[in-house]
Every structure is written in C-alpha cells, then in structure tokens.
Design a protein around this nucleic acid. Sequence first.
DNA 1: CAGTTTCATAAGTAATCGCTTATTTATAGC
DNA 2: GCTATAAATAAGCGATTACTTATGAAACTG
Lengths: 103, 103
Amino acid sequence: MEQALFRALGDPTRRAVYERLAAGEMNVAGLTALLDVTQPAVSQHLAALKGAGLVSERREGRRTYYKAEPAGLDPLMDWMARTSALWPERIERLRDLLKRMDR
Amino acid sequence: MEQALFRALGDPTRRAVYERLAAGEMNVAGLTALLDVTQPAVSQHLAALKGAGLVSERREGRRTYYKAEPAGLDPLMDWMARTSALWPERIERLRDLLKRMDR
DNA sequence: CAGTTTCATAAGTAATCGCTTATTTATAGC
DNA sequence: GCTATAAATAAGCGATTACTTATGAAACTG
C-alpha cells in the first residue's frame, strides 16, 4: 500500500532511480552508469520500486528496460488529498499543484 | 528537504501519529494512549516528524501539545508536481480528486 | 561451440531503525 | 520542602536496510 510507497521513495538513491525513469525508459546498465553504486544495488532498488508499483519492466533480449509507472503515484496523491482535505487552506495549494502540472 | 519527509512518513506508527495530529492538537500522553507503543517511542517519533517539518509543539505547563503543520506537506506536493507533470493523464486524476473534495 | 554481456540472486556486513527500560528535567500540588 | 506527573533523553538491543562481492542464468556474438 502507501506503506511501501513512502518507504520506496525514502531512500535517496532509489528516488534518484525513479526520477530518472520518470524522464524516460532505461535499462539497468544505463542506470548503473550514472548512479555510483554497483549493478546489483541498482537491481535491488528496481525490485523495491517494482514492489511498490512505481516501475514496470520490459525485457528485450538480454536487457531489461524499466520505466516509471505514472499510476504508481496515485495512492500518494490520494493520501495527500485525504490528509490536506482537513485544512481548507491547503486545498488552494492543491489547486496550485494542479495548475503547475497543467502545462 | 523531501528526504526527511519521505522517511518520516515511511514508518506506519509515525504516519499514524501524524494523521492523528492532522485531525487536531494532542499532547504526548494522549497519543501514547492510543498507539500501543511506550511514551519514549512516541516522543522519538514526534522528534522525527518535527525534524521533517511536519509537526510543531506548544508547551503548556508540563504538557506538550503537538499539531500537524499543514505546510509541511508542501515539499511533497512540489515533488509530485515536478515528477508527475511529465504524464498528462495524471493531471486528470488530480482534477477528479479536487472535484470530489469540493463539497 | 566457447566467450561475453546483461541482469538477477545469494550471502555477508556495517550502519541505521524502532523499540524497550532506565534516568533526567521540568512543572504542579500538597 | 516532598511527591507525583509529563515529557525528553540516554543506553542498549534485535531487526531491518543498503550496500558489497561472488555466483547464476539467459541471451547475443564470433
């Protein structure tokens, strides 16, 4: 649930992986090249992100391409909306968020 | 920074504390009463939440009342806006959420 | 085929985490 | 003053975490 989500994004290296994948598909070697950790570490982070529903994979020959799964953030959006719904003044901020995304 | 934020919300007990405080101010004894952990544990969680900018405290005699700090979620909103702005279809989802909150 | 590349998995390890009990600090009431 | 209460801090402990090296399993390449 949102449990795994927060956990997955709590690690800086893992969040870096996710943010990179949000910009576009990439294989494990590519990610490893720009991340200052070993390949197994990257694979482990990818497994965690996948477990949280944040990424999906696509095999192509011996490479595995990963990409961010947009819907994976929905539980986080829901949680934020539910939580900040308790503060009327925060809703305006949510509206801001929408405006900023909308272009 | 958003690092501490994700970390703080990654623990279920700590998120429970925050969600409870989002509903209204409460002192440490009150939180301890409904949380199935000891008072020091609660104090430690509160310290972490405070470090993440999610809660603030108010001393009153020998009690300390904590409350959720709505603006503490702003970095999370910003991060979401930055990240999911890459996917147009996510915007519609947020629009829906707002509409449902709007009553 | 043997050799290489790509990735996942296994095993081990140091550091961190969330919790506990024990203690300390501060305030209140007698 | 003495005792009780509220909360923070200290110290210690088992579990988890993020990493490493080593190995395994597939898929391409000559």
